[in-house]
Every structure is written in C-alpha cells, then in structure tokens.
Simulated scan of single mutants.
Amino acid sequence: MYNVSINLLDATPRAVVAIGTDYPDGFLLARHRHRRAQLLYGATGVMQVRTPAGDWVVPPQRAVWIAPGVEHEVLMLGVSTRSLYIEADALMLTGECQVLEVSALMRQLLLAAVEMDLEYDQQGRDGALVNLLLHELRAAASLPFHIPLPRDPALLMRCQAFLRTPDVHQSPAHWAGELHVSLRTFGRWFRAETGMSFSQWRQRACVLLALARLAQGEAITRIALDLGYDSPAAFSSMFRRTLGQTPRSLRDQ
C-alpha cells in the first residue's frame, strides 16, 4: 500500500498495516498522533522527529518507534518511508519514542510488507512475514539519537534557541547568567530536566544536528566550522566519541 493516510486504513482488521510514502524534500508532516504504534523507516534521506519530550534525528536506513497516542511532527529531508502501524496488543516497545537499528533482514521485510494485501492471509506467507517482522523489532538495538528537551518554559526556550543556532563553545556559565541562577543551580536544574549534564547535551545536540546535514551531502569542513569547532579533526573526534563512527563513514553509508 502506497501514499495513503493511515486514517483511512486504521480500522483494518489486522495487527499490522504497512504503508510506503514518498515525501518532497523539506516536507514538514504537521503535529499529529496515531491510535496505533508506528515504526517509521526511512529508506532514503533523514527524518527529524519532534515530540514534547525532545527531538530525534533518524539517519538513512534506521527507523523510529513512536508509541500510540504520542504527539509528533516529522521533517522529511529527501525521504521515502516505509511505515508499520501496529496494534498495541501485538507489540509494545519501551518509551514514547526511540531510534532503532534496522538489520538487513528487517530492511527487506519492511520493503516486502508494503506489497502485501491490506487484509493479508494471517495463516499464510504474509502472516509469517509480519510475525518475523515483529520478532526483529523486539530484538532491534536502540540508538542514542535523541536530544531531550526540558519541560520548564524558560529552559525550553533557551534549548530551542540553541538548536536553531548550535555552538559547541556555548558555556554553562553563559546560560546560567541568562537564566539568572548560579552555575551550581543551573547544573542541577539542567540535569533534572533533561537527564544529562549540559556538556553532554550540548555535544549530542551538535553531533546529531551535524548528522542531518551530513546525510544531505554537506561538506564536513563547512559543518565543523558552522558549529564552532576549531578544525574538522576536532569535530570528527567528537563525532566518533558520541556515535562510535566518523562523520565520513556515516555519510558514506
């Protein structure tokens, strides 16, 4: 099934509905929610998913799990998607949202799933395909591609401003001054709101925002300088410490 809204198919009497969709580059899927859980896989391009709890950057050949009822919007950067909409009693992963590794087997199963009949034979080949997909999903590794956002309005506003113009050299002392609290109070406050220290959050935000630009083919040197790194080598080192791969290797993927 291709290029059709889940809203038209939600009542289908099957545990899994598979839909393939092609999006124009830069398309923003406005804030919405689904009754079913969603596995959103990007066969090409990069997706940036935003929920009230934070942002997730989804590189090519990875997927994002979105729990039932979670409000979200998605920026599609050259993306062709394959989505599974899953009834809660068939599969429920932990958390509201997470980026998942997609195995070679899962990738082929996702591509095959959108070719199935909507009301597929649950006892036949397509039913076995769906069951295998659900087994692969349960075993999929979660990836650290999440930028958590605070709930406090003042701190949230400051974090959102940083995500618009990231700078690896912004200091916690600068943020504490702008928010009129001591450095120690700011450190405790930031960790309580995001689950991370400020330096960890700043580093992850810069790396994941860079990842989205890399996947669109931007030069490593340009990205490194825009983020405030002293050199492409310094940027590559930080990138590898955070994601376990160099910018070049991820771009080539």
Rank of each mutant, 00 (worst) to 15 (best):
L9N: 07
D126A: 14
C159I: 12
V64A: 08
C97G: 03
Q38S: 07
R31D: 10
R151Q: 12
A215Y: 06
D126V: 04
R240Q: 15
Q253T: 08
L163V: 09
L8F: 09
R191P: 01
L109E: 13
S249P: 07
A176S: 15
L39N: 00
I147D: 01
Y229E: 05
W56N: 11
G26F: 06
E193Y: 15
L118D: 13
T81S: 14
D167N: 15
A67I: 04
W189S: 06
F198W: 13
W65K: 06
Q200P: 03
E71D: 05
W175D: 05
Q200G: 10
T51L: 12
D25G: 03
L179M: 14
C159L: 10
L179P: 11
L225N: 06
F198K: 04
E96I: 00
Q245I: 05
H146I: 01
F239D: 09
V17R: 03
A112E: 15
P153F: 15
Q61E: 12
R222H: 05
P232K: 09
E193W: 05
I147M: 02
D25E: 12
Y229M: 10
L77K: 04
L250C: 08
Q98N: 01
Q123K: 11
P68E: 03
L183V: 14
R31I: 01
A90N: 00
T94H: 02
V114P: 01
A88G: 02
G69P: 09
A18F: 00
G69F: 09
R82C: 06
R14L: 04
V74F: 05
V57W: 13
A154C: 02
P166Y: 11
F235S: 07
W175V: 12
G124H: 10
G45M: 04
C206I: 13
E178V: 07
L9Q: 03
M47S: 07
L134I: 10
Y2L: 13
M238D: 15
P148G: 02
G177C: 09
C159K: 12
S171L: 15
L137G: 11
Q253M: 08
F27T: 11
V102S: 00
W65N: 00
P172D: 13
A18W: 00
E101K: 07
V58W: 04
T51N: 03
S236E: 13
P150I: 11
G69V: 02
R14M: 09
Q61F: 07
S171D: 14
V130P: 05
